[in-house]
Design a protein around this nucleic acid. Structure first.
Length: 710
DNA sequence: CGGTTGCACTTTTTT
DNA sequence: AGTGCAACCG
């Protein structure tokens, strides 16, 4: 690999991003400006031309998927074979922190076998903490406390500090719950998502030997999506950067959409202040979208006051205008989108996987799913109910967690009576009270349950039985591959028959367990598997089948599609109603969200809004989103006027204008790649009945059959 | 103890 | 509209 190859095909700003290898570097990368390319080539350049070892590079990405893709591209660029172990320190903040804590966490009291609590686990434990403190969940919702705790942690605020600054009684209460939650969490040997970051910060802050070791090791640091770093991540970065100051951050404040999670885009605006002498490079050429799309997106974002100045431009032509489509309601909206996609696919101008449908809230996916099924449009949903959030999957994972970490009361409480084994709330409480008074961990306590007098013989027998099951799982973890462990677990616990009720979901659940087993087979150990399951984001799945992608605007960050539909362009949805009572800052974030969505589109961008929509089981009427007005008239061609209200439907002509369709009709002469020439004798949507000249009659799908009109 | 019924709440976005 | 949970009954 020579310098020329690595720099070939890059523009000047990109080249500079690659070759500026020493000192702090800020790359302001607009949407679609070839940021990933610049980053990948930068790493390749460091390794191939500057003699930096891959192990010395700390590269932080926003999602696991981004890390995986970059690792693959990099391997290709450098001709690497062993993709899996290459660039071991490339990953998300959370993933990297897990690795660091597994190695050095004991210095700050993090047990080597710690398990990771997800949002559900955390909320469950907070509920328990509230119960113990007799805090009614009517007064303060567990969710509120959970997010308060998360915010506190992200700001590196301890329970003590929280309490000392608390002014109102309810803040005192939150502080109390926070402290109790921390106590219980620690006893369970678990870390929540935020702990992964702050324990690592504590590790580096309080242990200079450890800090120095890692500082010296990481000679080059790269942070992607820097605009979405929070205070804890910022502190971590500061602690890890050594005197060489070889830190490169990449981001775009226009695309900061995670402030609700503690992200602070002033981190990127202040980079030059934090790292004096930083080189600043702006990537301003957009290689993704047509001028129409870029102009419209620009008009939206320019209304924000809190933003940097930059001027994205494209060499691409104007392209098709951004289209705005008014529809009756959410059903009509879904049908419109499904029909339009089906039409484009049917005539072969697009494939399903050219298209993404983006929405503000997960709840909006339901009508779309129904319509897509009805129209036979293949789709996949990114996010929503994540695979690893399914009840049956979480149950199995809870068994595994408990086997790995027998002090994990949360997981124990989850599985103690699943499948039902006659242990109710009373027995559970008694057992836990007794176990807490002994030195036994949960599994040991189960095995010694005879020693307590407070339980009925029946309950004791059931608990002892569970203890045996857990011991057998532990043994299996030592001896068997992860997939086998899970298979045995499912049988041993009777979970396989437990999920076979007579509901229609029984089959789904079975399939999910099958998928879980096959997922697990890719891992070397149960520990690895549990880690991945906890940290995998909803944006990480990568089914590359030919399917339309449905996802939230947030999940779409970093992706691009030839055709994008943004649905629900109404006040109250985008911008979301919740920001009305918040402040201008929140409205600006909604605007950035709109910008992010629009700039995902390469060639075609369609926006839809509905005259009415059912929310919370109530029909509501919302005006069109202000962002549509912001886009300006010249780039928009509105079909179906806003004034046409409830009767606003597309005429057949209008529809054909926008989605030219040339469907097959009876009598058409066609040629099939597989069956030769024939005549269409019947049409039912995409299903065609064709009499081939050889005499055979086939029913074919117009989309897949590779038919050609002749 | 376990299942069922009815009521209340939901919908912001996620590592 | 769909889900989760609390209160009730068998």
């Amino acid at each position: 690999m020579v310098v020329m190859d690595i720099l070939a095909g890059l523009n000047d700003a990109q080249k500079q991003s690659v070759t500026t290898t020493s000192g702090p570097l800020l790359i302001l990368a607009g949407a679609g400006s070839g940021k990933t390319k610049a980053l990948t080539h930068r790493i390749a350049y460091l390794i191939a031309n500057e003699g930096v070892w891959p192990e010395q590079i700390l590269a932080v990405t926003f999602t696991n998927k981004a890390a995986r893709e970059m690792r693959e591209r990099l391997s290709g660029l450098l001709g690497q074979e062993n993709t899996r172990t290459f660039m071991p320190w490339m990953g998300t903040f959370h993933g990297i922190c897990v690795r660091l804590l597994r190695i050095d966490g004991e210095a700050v009291g993090v047990p080597r076998n710690f398990i990771i609590y997800d949002e559900d686990d955390r909320q469950g434990l907070i509920k328990q903490a509230m119960k113990q403190l007799s805090v009614s969940d009517k007064e303060i919702k567990p969710r509120t406390i959970s997010s308060a705790v998360s915010n506190a942690k992200n700001e590196l605020v301890t329970p003590d500090e929280f309490e000392s600054t608390a002014q109102f009684p309810y803040q005192k209460t939150i502080a109390k719950v926070y402290r109790q939650y921390e106590k219980m969490r620690r006893e369970a040997g678990a870390l929540d998502f935020d702990d992964l970051l702050i324990e690592t910060v504590r590790l580096f802050r309080d242990h200079s030997t450890v800090r120095t070791k890692w500082r010296d090791k990481f000679t080059h640091i790269l942070i992607d999506e820097y605009q979405d770093t929070n205070a804890a991540q910022y502190a971590l970065i500061k602690l890890l950067v050594n005197n060489q100051q070889n830190i490169a951050v990449v981001g775009d404040d226009w695309q900061s959409i995670y402030s609700w999670r503690g992200a602070d885009f002033t981190n990127i605006l202040n980079f030059e202040r934090d790292f004096p002498g930083a080189t600043v490079i702006k990537l301003e050429q957009n290689y993704r979208s047509t001028a129409s799309i870029l102009d419209a997106a620009h008009s939206v974002i320019l209304k924000n006051t809190q933003r940097s100045d930059k001027k994205l431009w494209t060499a691409a032509g104007e392209g098709a205008p951004v289209r705005v489509h008014a529809v009756d309601d959410e059903t009509a909206e879904a049908a419109f989108v499904a029909e339009a996609i089906a039409a484009q696919v049917a005539i072969g101008t697009r494939r399903y996987d050219d298209v993404a449908v983006l929405y503000r809230t997960n709840a909006q996916s339901a009508p779309l799913e129904r319509a897509f099924m009805r129209y036979g449009v293949k789709y996949r949903i990114v996010g929503g109910v994540r695979f690893y959030d399914r009840k049956e999957v979480k149950d199995i994972l809870a068994y595994l967690k408990l086997a790995v970490q027998p002090r994990d009361r949360m997981s124990f409480s989850r599985v103690v009576n699943v499948p039902t084994r006659g242990i109710g709330a009373t027995s559970l409480e008694k057992f836990l009270a007794w176990q807490g008074s002994t030195d036994f961990d949960i599994i040991a306590a189960l095995s010694n349950v005879e020693q307590t007098s407070s339980l009925t013989p029946r309950a004791k027998a059931a608990l002892a039985g569970l203890g045996e099951i857990l011991r057998s799982i532990q043994a299996s973890i030592v001896n068997d591959a992860p997939a086998e462990v899970i298979e045995k677990l499912i049988k041993r616990t009777g979970y396989d028959t437990y999920i076979l009720d007579d509901t229609p979901q029984a089959e789904d659940r079975q399939e999910n367990l099958g998928a879980l087993i096959s997922d697990a087979s890719a891992f070397a150990s149960v520990d690895d598997f549990l880690e991945e399951a906890a940290l995998l984001s909803s944006a990480d799945s990568s089914a590359d089948d030919n399917e339309v992608t449905l996802m939230t605007l947030h999940a779409a960050k970093g992706l691009e599609f030839p055709v994008v539909y943004m649905v629900g362009m109404e006040e109250g949805i985008l911008p979301h109603a919740r920001v009305y009572e918040a402040g201008p800052a929140e409205l600006e974030e909604e605007r950035r969200l709109c910008y992010v969505g629009m700039t995902r589109a390469r060639e075609e961008l369609h926006l839809t809004y509905a005259y009415s929509r059912i929310t919370f089981g109530q029909r509501s009427y919302q005006p069109v989103s202000r962002f549509i007005a912001d886009m300006g008239d010249q780039v928009l061609q509105t079909t179906g006027g806003p004034d046409r209200g409830a009767t606003n439907r597309y005429t057949a002509d209008e529809f054909d204008d926008f989605f030219p369709d040339e469907p097959f009709t009876s009598g058409d002469r066609v040629k099939s790649q597989a069956f030769g020439k024939g005549t269409v004798v019947d049409v039912d949507g995409l299903a065609l009945t064709i009499e081939f000249d050889g005499g055979t009659t086939k029913r074919l799908n117009a989309e897949y059959a590779r038919l050609e009109k002749i």
